[in-house]
């Protein structure tokens, strides 16, 4: 089968609303689920051949957004398009695309009551780019038993199985949706290593949703931050790491430096004040800070995420209350 180039995925003003519906619970008893808006005005892109991190709190809509890529459901409004650059199409019921887009969700979508190997041969048959030898290697690495029933595996082993499926399928668009949940730390790092090694060898588009930001952020080339069903930012990861800065020093000097900036957090420790500001500092600012005895720190991606989602959620006193606020804040620095 001819290989495909890495896929781009694009969301164009996508909205997903869930109607009031029934769901089958784990105990087999149906329960009412009230309607809700899961995604609103989602417009963003996962660029071809890059690793993008989809970050956000639990319930921000990450899984719903990623489900659209695999055509697990249709958007209520807007368009979801995937494909090689310049030839993006709707993946809905198009086998050429669905067999090239793999969304691995937590626990893995496996044949529950069958042996693990049944799931493997199923994926092997449906995935044109499946590499059976690589799949074996990964199973050995993660110590997943082939001959056990999928339903009796521990949570960690199920996640390892899901990770294996995701890597061995070599899909031009591969999405790992919180796939590391339940894995212990060594297994998680083994997964990140395997992902990087295989990505370098077989370039493809990878999206990883995560709330373990600290651990995964260095894998990302791009970051999309989702909060309460909206895209808060979508930018190259390197640009974001220095976006939130802390200024620590004498209160007067800190206040002087922080004046006119978007202050996210303020903390007093006696005569010393620590202020967290949103937006980069210029070299001049840095020199002024050093001269005034103010220490500059960077909060990294995790800090940015916490500040952006907290301020949009709780509407702190020193700013607006909508999810769009952080973007507005960024513009105010230009």
């Amino acid at each position: 089968m001819n290989p495909l180039p890495p896929f781009t995925a694009r969301f164009d003003d996508v909205e997903v609303t869930f109607p009031r519906s029934w769901e089958m619970g784990e105990n087999g008893v149906a329960r009412r689920v009230s309607g809700s808006v899961a995604l609103e005005n989602i417009t963003c892109e996962f660029p071809a051949g890059q690793i993008t991190g989809l970050l956000g709190r639990n319930g921000a809509g990450k899984s719903t957004m990623l489900s659209l890529l695999a055509a697990f459901r249709r958007p209520t409004r807007g368009a979801v398009l995937v494909g090689p650059d310049g030839d993006l199409r709707d993946p809905w019921e198009d086998a050429a695309l669905t067999s090239a887009v793999l969304v691995v969700q937590e626990g893995g979508d496996v044949l529950q009551d069958e042996k693990v190997e049944a799931t493997f041969s199923y994926y092997a048959d449906l995935r044109p780019d499946w590499d059976p030898e690589y799949a074996r290697e990964l199973l050995d690495l993660f110590e997943v038993p082939l001959r056990k029933k999928a339903s009796v595996l521990s949570r960690g082993k199920r996640s390892a199985l899901a990770a294996t499926l995701g890597l061995a399928a070599r899909a031009p668009l591969t999405v790992f949706d919180e796939v590391y949940l339940g894995m212990d730390a060594p297994t998680r790092f083994a997964f990140y290593d395997a992902l990087l090694a295989d990505y370098a060898e077989h370039p493809r588009t990878i999206v990883m949703s995560s709330h373990l930001v600290e651990e995964t952020e260095r894998l990302f080339e791009n970051v999309v931050l989702l909060d309460r069903g909206r895209v808060v930012l979508a930018e190259p990861a390197d640009d974001l790491r220095t976006r939130v800065t802390s200024l620590t020093g004498p209160t007067a000097a800190v206040d002087h430096l922080a004046a006119g900036r978007d202050v996210l957090h303020r903390q007093h420790l006696g005569p010393t004040t620590r202020v967290t500001v949103h937006g980069p500092l210029s070299d001049d600012d840095a020199r002024a800070a050093a001269a005034a005895g103010v220490t500059i720190g960077h909060e990294g991606l995790e800090g940015l995420l916490i500040h952006l989602t907290r301020s949009s959620r709780e509407g702190t006193g020193d700013g607006g209350t909508t999810a769009g606020r952080p973007l507005a804040g960024k513009e105010s620095h230009r």
């Binding site: 890059q50 990140y192 990087l196 090694a197 370098a200 060898e201 260095r218 894998l219 990302f220 080339e221």
Partner: peptide, 18 residues
């Protein structure tokens, strides 16, 4: 190589490339 760099330090290969 960028690949070795990426896997050794667990970073995105594009970062090493840059």
């Amino acid at each position: 190589s960028t690949t070795q760099f990426a896997t050794t330090f667990r970073i995105n290969p594009a970062t090493a490339q840059k």
